[in-house]
Design a protein around this nucleic acid. Sequence first.
DNA 1: AATCATGGTGGAATCGTTTCCATGAGTGGT
DNA 2: ACCACTCATGGAAACGATTCCACCATGATT
Lengths: 335, 335
Amino acid sequence: MSGPAQRRITIKEVAEAAGVGVATVSRVLSGGSASPETREKVFAAAARLDYRPSALGRNLRRQRTGGVGLLVPDITDSFYARLADGVLSCARSYGEPVTIGVTGDDPEREAELIGALIEQSMDRLIAVPSGDGDMWAPALRAGLNVVFADRRVRTDVPSVVPDDRAGVLTAVEYLAGLGHRRIAFLARHGQSQRVTAFLSAAASLGLPVDRDMVVHARASRDSAYAAAAGLLQHHSDVTAVLAGGNVLGEAAVLAARELDVRIPRDVSLIMFDDVPWAELCSPPLTVIAQPAQDIGYRAAELVLRQGRRPPAVTLPTRLVVRASCGPRVAPRRSS
Amino acid sequence: MSGPAQRRITIKEVAEAAGVGVATVSRVLSGGSASPETREKVFAAAARLDYRPSALGRNLRRQRTGGVGLLVPDITDSFYARLADGVLSCARSYGEPVTIGVTGDDPEREAELIGALIEQSMDRLIAVPSGDGDMWAPALRAGLNVVFADRRVRTDVPSVVPDDRAGVLTAVEYLAGLGHRRIAFLARHGQSQRVTAFLSAAASLGLPVDRDMVVHARASRDSAYAAAAGLLQHHSDVTAVLAGGNVLGEAAVLAARELDVRIPRDVSLIMFDDVPWAELCSPPLTVIAQPAQDIGYRAAELVLRQGRRPPAVTLPTRLVVRASCGPRVAPRRSS
DNA sequence: AATCATGGTGGAATCGTTTCCATGAGTGGT
DNA sequence: ACCACTCATGGAAACGATTCCACCATGATT
């Protein structure tokens, strides 16, 4: 089983072994000035004892915890997993550990997790915010260094987000170019950015803008499926749908199969977020690819780099056309 | 921008505000005994000042960091993401933060991350181990409380793993039942458990066991694709393949498409790990489902619960038949 | 030769908490 | 009336690092 759990060795013992004072050891090990010979003695002693400075002691003294917190709605969602991978990758190059929490898109849980984080004296946080911007006031006041990723809910907090407006516009233009006029947007709650982009894109292309062409779902798979099925059933006039995320897209193809709506013959589908299975799907899905990993990486850079912080960075999306969109045919018959 | 970053209030100030000593505050807040009236005063003061005890101070004194570390090969892989979700979910119910690191299946990076973790005074760790068991000796000696997940590389460390043996056996039996005799196993390096299970299953069913019926790949998508393509190209006699994980499975269907090998007409495919896209795939994939989330949850339970720790728990897998397996036909012609 | 500047060095304070121990008050038994 | 015992309480010591500051030796300057 576990060994005798030897006590961890402290700076004091290193000092003793090297025949110097603790202050000197600390100075040498953090790159301060010292005579070459003491430096040598200290390094030798530290190496011989396999000394690892305790982050606890350091942080307590320094009044700040290294490391960054990361809050995502659902680590199981490929998009957030890739985003997390990006921040992990950046944080690793800074040698900073990252503590992760999943909010389930629930503002209450989010607040809870923020509390836990500041209890750990974490002073840097990357978050995909769930609620509206107001609930962040206390955290900000507590001195937390926040960067938003994927969603921008406050203008006074740096954020890195995909270019929703351009992405939506590209998608809608593409569909309109194929002759579609009744295009629906399957959105997750909170995607107001994309919804307004969708409405204005439709308007600018002379398409009929109709408030109930946008259908909302909560973040869960079940809710997404219900919304997709509802859309496909009750709006037999729509000939194309734009899904606001990969779980919405998945729900849409599942619902379409169940309802015997063929893609792309009966309706065309574009999904936000390129995931590995989009190509494996039948039919392969045309998508708006988002740089999820970059978003995470850049957000981590923003929060880890001390310097000036640009208020917002927007990363481009890209249309990847596969086989889920076709020319508009006659509207489906009402079911 | 960020506020004046008000200094965090300490136990000392609470003590002063409540008119008691710090020891009393600490005792009351951690549920120790105290007279009802002092208790009341302390709670009132703490609430009024919005006091949050510093985890740093506590942990330094207690000589142990709350929270658990989690090491996975790749958070982007659905299986590990679900596993992580399981530990996150369990840790949340204990109120413990979890610090995550991705090893990329590289023992060197793994060792690095372990070092960083013990520098943080983390004493509890859940790991999907990358290398062999030997490299864990130092960590164990350092008093680290380790639980392995998904892979068992040492018998002296508690671990929770899927039932590889039964899963492989079920798959091979199912394929054999369809008439297949030349069955290949597409494995990731390190899946020795499954490889031996595969060989013994083949033997017990009277199938020809042939060492080069198992093909190895590294963890990357590219390596997986190369291995899958190589298998499909050079072994025209195999009529069924078992993929050891979801990225191997994905690679197999991609390679099959590229090489114009039809599934299941030309070769049958079973994939380890049920992922959402398995159903969306064309054809829908027959899989061996693994309880990824449960694995994570149970591992977290093991590491968080103080009590006795069973040396190993094995979780059942389940065959989910969809449409990627068919009866054996004449072997494909050599390409 | 006396003084000043310089630069290496170590003692001690500090960070915020828990916990040991001493103290004092109150109670019940003899 | 005294002792023994319980119980609430607060002062102070730890935990392991960083960092201020005082100290000393050495070399340079007047």
